[in-house]
Computed example of a mutant assay.
Amino acid sequence: MAKKYVHIHRLRRVYTWELPVRLYHWLNALVMVALIVTGFYISNPLVISSHQEASNRFVMGWMRAIHFIAAYIFFFNFIFRLYWGFVGNKYANWKQFIPTGKFFFKEIWQVLKIDILQLKGKEHLSVGHNALAGFIYFFTFIAFGIQSLTGFGLYASMSNWWLPKLFSWVPAILGGDIMVRQVHHWTMWFFILFVVIHVYLVFYHDYVEGRGETSSMVGGWKFIEEEAFQKDQQTAPDRRVLTDEKK
């Protein structure tokens, strides 16, 4: 009888997501929820009947205040992420998001086959973001910029602070406040769609790969096959990558 041999992967514990990246991620998730909820209310407010004085039911004012505070946090958090793309480790670097060669597009096609056709046997591709995820995040950064421009462009006419007034040119470029609001609203729906797909794929890849995909954005560590890690280091070595071997 022929003997069957089971290959046991040698795993390496790799510190993938640095603390600033994790803080950026969760803070961004929180303010995006606040912006979407308050944005929906501002665009289509509810009629609230009450026997109280109108001055005691300043719902729209609170919604706008929360929206503006969340917008400032969103903006400065975005600026910080742009900066960290140059000073962070290799998994936060801009090279993770911009196609730099044929291998990038080859991996995108491989991930599409895994995600859409549920191809088995080639799930372990990248230590940090896979190529498809990185490429999609690149478009989200563009969308972040669009939301910042259109949001502060709308706010410029009613604010006394110099920062929003820097964006007063946006309505003139886009043809007025109505078009700016439309672009702002359409981009919001991009983020809603992105969040739904993002959450699904994180849990799906966590299931098929078993690398701690979900928990890595809390603690920063992933469990990576030794072969995959060595391949990753050969293509783009980084001395600041922290590791710990596990069997």
Rank of each mutant, 00 (worst) to 15 (best):
E225F: 05
K120N: 07
E18M: 04
M63C: 15
W162G: 05
R239E: 06
L149D: 01
A133F: 07
E245V: 11
V195H: 02
F86L: 06
G212K: 02
L46F: 11
F75C: 10
A71R: 01
F103Q: 13
L35G: 03
W189I: 02
S55W: 11
V183H: 10
E18R: 09
W109R: 12
G88S: 14
W94N: 03
L174Y: 02
H124P: 06
V208D: 01
K246E: 08
T187F: 15
Y15K: 01
L132Q: 01
K247A: 15
L112G: 04
G134K: 01
F190V: 05
K231F: 15
L201K: 11
E107H: 10
T38R: 00
G61M: 15
Q110A: 09
L125M: 11
A71V: 08
I142P: 07
K120H: 08
G151N: 01
E123L: 08
R64C: 07
V59G: 10
N160F: 12
K90T: 02
W189Q: 02
E245F: 14
Q230D: 09
I73W: 06
L154A: 03
G85T: 05
L117K: 08
S157M: 08
R13A: 01
A65G: 11
F138D: 14
L132S: 01
V195F: 05
H7I: 10
Y207S: 07
G220R: 00
P164I: 09
V111W: 00
F144C: 03
T214G: 05
A133Y: 07
F76W: 12
Q118L: 12
Y204S: 05
V241D: 03
T16V: 15
S168R: 04
I42K: 13
L163H: 10
R10V: 14
V111S: 03
E245K: 12
P45D: 14
H124Y: 14
E107L: 12
F68L: 06
A34C: 07
P99G: 14
I136H: 09
F203S: 09
F40E: 07
H51I: 10
I192G: 09
R12T: 06
V241R: 02
Y24T: 10
Q118I: 09
M1Q: 13
W162S: 12
P164Y: 08
P171Y: 05
D244N: 04
Y41Q: 12
G88C: 11
E213Y: 06
Q182K: 10
V59E: 10
K122S: 07
K102G: 05
T150I: 09
P164V: 07
L174F: 04
V170D: 00
W109L: 14
A2D: 08
L82Q: 14
W169K: 01
R13L: 00
F190D: 00
T150G: 07
T38D: 01
M1N: 13
L119D: 00
R10N: 13
T243K: 02
I224V: 11
F68A: 09
V180P: 00
H184V: 06
F203T: 10
M158G: 14
A156W: 01
F86T: 04
F40C: 08
R10M: 10
F80Q: 08
Q182V: 09
T235E: 13
V14P: 00
